[in-house]
Every structure is written in C-alpha cells, then in structure tokens.
C-alpha cells in the first residue's frame, strides 16, 4: 500500500528526515516510536502534504501513485488520513457540515454520487456509536471548546466517517486520560480490517497495549534505525531511548 524510499525532507532549511524507508501493507498496523525531535510528527506532516515541509530526496508510493505529487486534499481523497496531534479549532464551521463537505468531495473525486441527507445522517449515527462519540459534539463548531480528549475522539470519529485506506495517528495518545485512551483505542480496533492500514506514531508504549501493532519501528535522527515486533516496544519502554543514542554515536564513530 505505502512504500517510502530514502525519504529526505527539511523544514525551513533544517533537515528533519534523512533517508527514511518504510513499507506498509494492507491489514497491517505499524507503530513508529522514538524520542522527541526524531522526526516522527514530521513524517506524518510530509505524508499528509503540509506545505512548509520540503521533500529534498526520495519517493513515496501510495497504491501505485506518487503521493508527493499530490495536493493535500487529493491525498485525503485517495485514502490517506492524518489524525492530528493538535486538532484545529474552527469556530463557525459545524462539525457535521465539515464532515458532509469532506465526504461529499471525497465521493465526487471517486465518481460516487453524493449521499442524500438521510443516508448521511444514518452513517453519522452509526459511526458515532461505533467510536462512542458524543452526539452533542457533532453539531457544535469544529473542535471549538472541546477538551483534549474530545478533540482526539473527534479525529477518530472523522476517521470512521471517511474510511481511509491508510490512517496515520500522530501522537493520538498524548493528553489522553486512561478512559479516553481506552475509548480511542477501541474505536481504532473496530475500524481495523484487512483492507486498511494504520501508522501509529507514539512516544509511549502505553497506547500499544490497547492497539497491538504488527510492527514497531524506532525513528531516530530522521531514519528508522530499528524495526521489530511488539516486543520492541516493551524493550523501549524498559530501556528508554538513551541506548539508541549511544549506539548511533558509536556507529558514527566507527564510520569515521
């Protein structure tokens, strides 16, 4: 589904990604862990098409198409979804109208007829239930005055509504209490299928107790330096990230 090769990217002239490789197949859940500043969120931004990130080298293939050539909205229409670390509040845009517009544009892109009001409402109710999203929040302005947890749950609700093939969850667990974490994870687990894939970016192992990944990657200094299965996450939890830094420093020392 997603093949990232030798990806280099910079923001404001500062190199952030330095040759990142990753392959994600349908049905898989990949966790990307790493210390602060390693480039985890930058990877999410680059994949979603945030404009201040400049790709200087490498390629990203998404279902046979060059993702890097596409505008952010086209990436979304093709099936890439980024759950934001900091969802934006937009007063005056109602949550439900926003979703109706988004779904409408995605369907138009895929040459599907628009959903009528009734079908849309039905779908919305169904998904609200699935991810335990409060109906009261649906009609409010987009994220306005939502608590941290409500914002994250809204991201998962949007994810459920838009049904992307690849979902990137950028530190969705940050700022969540244990109950919210459980609800968010439950939602994600219900949405998992053999047709879609997840990239879960997280700093802590905690989330991975609820959403069990097939693969765990360690991102450090703009590259994936170690990959493994879910046991790797436990190892990281125990040892922290310092050993990585030492290892990397040693490696650099030997190359010199």
């Amino acid at each position: 589904m997603l093949i990232i090769k030798n990806l280099h990217a910079e923001v404001e002239g500062k190199q952030i990604l330095k040759g990142l490789d990753l392959k994600v197949n349908a049905g898989e859940v990949h966790a990307i862990m790493g210390p602060n500043g390693a480039g985890k969120s930058s990877l999410a931004s680059v994949l979603a098409g945030r404009e201040n990130f400049e790709v200087t080298e490498g390629e990203v293939d998404f279902e046979g198409k060059n993702l890097l050539d596409m505008a952010p909205e086209d990436r979304a229409r093709e099936g890439v979804f980024l759950a934001f670390q900091y969802p934006i509040e937009i007063p005056g845009v109602s949550n439900i109208n926003f979703l109706k517009t988004a779904l409408g544009e995605i369907r138009a892109y895929k040459n599907l007829p628009p959903l009528d009001a009734k079908a849309f409402l039905q779908l919305s109710k169904e998904k609200q239930k699935l991810v335990e999203f409060d109906a009261k929040l649906v009609n409010r302005s987009l994220n306005e005055g939502f608590s941290g947890g409500e914002k994250k749950r809204n991201e998962i609700f949007q994810l459920a509504m838009l049904e992307p093939s690849l979902a990137i969850l950028d530190e969705t667990d940050s700022g969540l209490d244990i109950d919210a974490l459980r609800i968010v994870s439950k939602g994600v687990n219900k949405l998992r299928s053999d047709k879609n894939a997840f990239i879960i970016i997280t700093h802590y192992q905690r989330l991975l107790e609820y959403i069990v990944p097939d693969f765990v990657h360690v991102l450090y200094d703009g590259r994936i330096v170690k990959s493994g299965t879910k046991e790797l996450a436990l190892e990281l939890e125990e040892k922290g990230y310092d050993w990585l830094k030492e290892q990397s420093a040693e490696k650099e020392a030997t190359t010199i």
Binding site: V93, T101, A102, I106
Partner: peptide, 22 residues
C-alpha cells in the same frame, strides 16, 4: 485551519469559502 480542512479532502477553494463563512 486551511491545512486541516484540506487534509480531510476538502479542496482549497471550498476550504477558503468555509473559513470565510466561519
């Protein structure tokens, strides 16, 4: 805000119109 809307599949013009209305 513009990026947030676009990242959900909403085209740039529509996104701007939404933000003006908001």
């Amino acid at each position: 805000a513009l990026f947030y809307l676009r990242a959900r599949g909403i085209g740039e013009d529509t996104a701007k119109a939404l933000l003006i209305a908001a």
